[in-house]
Simulated scan of single mutants.
Amino acid sequence: MAAPNLLILAQKGRLEFEAIIFAASLRHAAPDFTGRLIVAEPQPDGAWADHDTRIDEETRALLESLGAEIALFTARHFGAAYPYGNKIEALSVLPAGEAFAFFGTDTLICGPLEQVPFDAAPPAASMRREGTWPEPPLYGPGYGGIWQSLYDRFGLDFASSLDLSQPDEHWERYLYFNAGWFFGPDPAVFGQRFLDWALSVRRDPPEELACQSLDPWLDQVILPLVIHSLGGGRPGPDLAGLDGGVTCHYRNLPLLYARESDRVLEVLEAAVAPNRIKKRLREWEPAKKLIYQNKGRDKVRPLFAGGLPSREKPIRQTLKKNGWWWD
Rank of each mutant, 00 (worst) to 15 (best):
L223C: 06
W325M: 07
L209V: 04
V116M: 12
N5D: 15
R14H: 13
G140H: 11
S229G: 05
A271L: 10
E130R: 05
V189I: 15
A24E: 12
T247H: 14
W325E: 11
Q220H: 00
A188H: 14
R193M: 14
T74H: 06
N5K: 08
F78V: 04
R153V: 05
A49H: 04
P302S: 02
L308P: 02
D157W: 08
S92A: 14
P95C: 00
W147H: 15
R173C: 06
A29T: 05
D152W: 06
I21V: 14
A188L: 12
Q43D: 12
L303Q: 07
A61F: 01
G231L: 06
L209D: 04
L15P: 00
P136Q: 10
P254L: 02
I88F: 04
V246H: 09
K299A: 12
A24I: 10
R301I: 02
S126I: 04
S261D: 06
E135S: 12
Q220D: 00
G145Y: 11
A188E: 15
A124R: 01
N5W: 08
I222Q: 07
P95D: 00
H170S: 08
R234I: 13
L290A: 01
P141D: 12
V267Q: 09
A80C: 04
P309M: 00
P4M: 10
